[in-house]
Design a protein around this nucleic acid. Structure first.
Lengths: 260, 260
DNA sequence: ACGTATTTGTTCGTATGTATT
DNA sequence: CAATACATACGAACAAATACG
């Protein structure tokens, strides 16, 4: 465990104390300093020398962002699921897992190659060597998605020896390559798969899929370009809204036809 | 304008004061009591006889939910866009409008009919008469989506005389039929349009669309069943995330290829 | 152009209630 | 029962942005 490094707050700064505190707690969270238990209000008051109100303000925002969870009488806890990658693609994997289905991965290819399109998104030269990870994801043995990832070989070459049929890519990427994906974007489009992709997904020829393009960044540069195809006849994107309880909830993935 | 009806707070209730206050402000917002300007902190303190801290707590939550907006030195304001319908479909219309494109509507059909599938979603008998609104939506003259809505004729018959080529359906529904849609769900799927739909959308035969199914409820019962097809070759669903600044979990629609 | 009043933003302090250990 | 930790609620003061005479 890394030793606690606390950045002292600057009271003469125009940045509010709660914002400085929130930023430092975000940094310490990203450093993995709190495995599960988070400092109590009182501890924060003492280490940062602020009022309890200010400490709560910062922690409240981290709770609202979903990183922490407070439990009355017990303490504040890190939400481990939020250490997992963000975005609609990983939300799908998690919702499938939460449904009780057993997820397995078939590795179709794990090689070094070049790809001009992926290179463009990764902002490297078109002939720059890339690591390609081509996998099929299955839920209870039935194909759910095909998932192609390209990463610059200069940073991702250690992955060629990794076991990518289990676990989360980002964990391997952090452990073996020292790269932490911190942000990015995703674009979701409907598309018609090629006959080859249709076969891999074991779906009829006249059905459409979600194509999810995903770019992951490691602070200073893009490191992950991914194109995934998700069976649209089995999975759909569902949103509910209700002005009384709060509107526009986070979309979730569902299978089947019933919507609450 | 309705006279201000303030529900007194119950200090012996186990429900926190801020929750009671938030609920009452939500109700007054729904009643349209505040056209644009919202009470100041001081006014809330006086009318509800709570501390400023409690009043701010309630208002902060309404701000977080997106219903209000506070501006230092000016006051608190109702966000008018939040009086508009929620969901991915209306988010698309708004983002197209925000892009500067001129939106027009072509009315293809406005009739009374029956439809067993729609009736099932509206929870009425299969032969119950429905109002069908079948429209094509265009952005700068180019087809963007086709949009079919079914409503129970018993409540929506006044719409047969309405001008549905302009304005928002929900406004007509509220004005002519006295029905306020307050909640519901949406399901998004990729699909392949029929040749007929392809023609209406003026798109090539081998492209896929987003199918958005939408169920709108008026508190006690479903009143709107809608199936829309959005050109997937022109519009995509984009999400960005960034753990440092807070994860952006609300997807937006974009056209073109550039993603920030 | 300036000063004052208003309004929200931030920060402190204090006390009490409630759930958990 | 007691200690701990979060939840709620009150009060007070000053700062920063805005509006207005």
């Amino acid at each position: 465990m890394a030793k606690a490094r606390v950045v002292p707050l600057d009271r003469s700064s125009p940045v509010p104390l709660w914002a400085q505190l929130e930023a430092d707690l975000r940094r310490r969270l990203a450093d993995g300093e709190f495995s599960r238990q988070f400092p109590t209000d009182r501890e924060l008051v003492e280490t940062y020398e602020v009022s309890r109100h200010t400490a709560r303000d910062a922690v409240d925002r981290l709770c609202a962002a979903g990183l922490l969870e407070r439990r009355r009488g017990r303490g504040t806890f890190v939400r481990p699921e939020f250490e997992q990658p963000a975005g609609a693609l990983y939300a799908l994997f998690r919702s499938v897992e939460a449904s009780g289905a057993e997820q397995t991965i078939e590795l179709r290819a794990l090689t070094e190659c070049t790809n001009a399109d992926a290179a463009a998104h990764l902002e490297v030269a078109p002939d720059e060597p890339l690591v390609l990870i081509d996998r099929t994801r299955l839920a209870d043995g039935e194909p759910l998605a095909i998932d192609c990832v390209w990463l610059p070989a200069s940073v991702a070459r250690p992955l060629l020896d990794a076991d990518l049929a289990h676990g989360v890519l980002y964990h391997e990427l952090a452990q073996r390559c020292g790269v932490h994906v911190t942000g990015g974007w995703e674009r979701i489009r409907p598309s018609i798969p090629t006959p080859c992709d249709c076969e891999a997904l074991q779906m009829p020829a006249d059905t459409a899929v979600f194509t999810i393009e995903r770019l992951g960044r490691a602070d200073d540069r893009p490191v992950e370009w991914r194109v995934s195809m998700v069976r649209g006849d089995r999975y759909s994107f569902v949103t509910t809204w209700d002005p009384r309880t709060g509107v526009d909830r986070i979309p979730t993935w569902q299978t089947g036809t019933a919507v609450g």
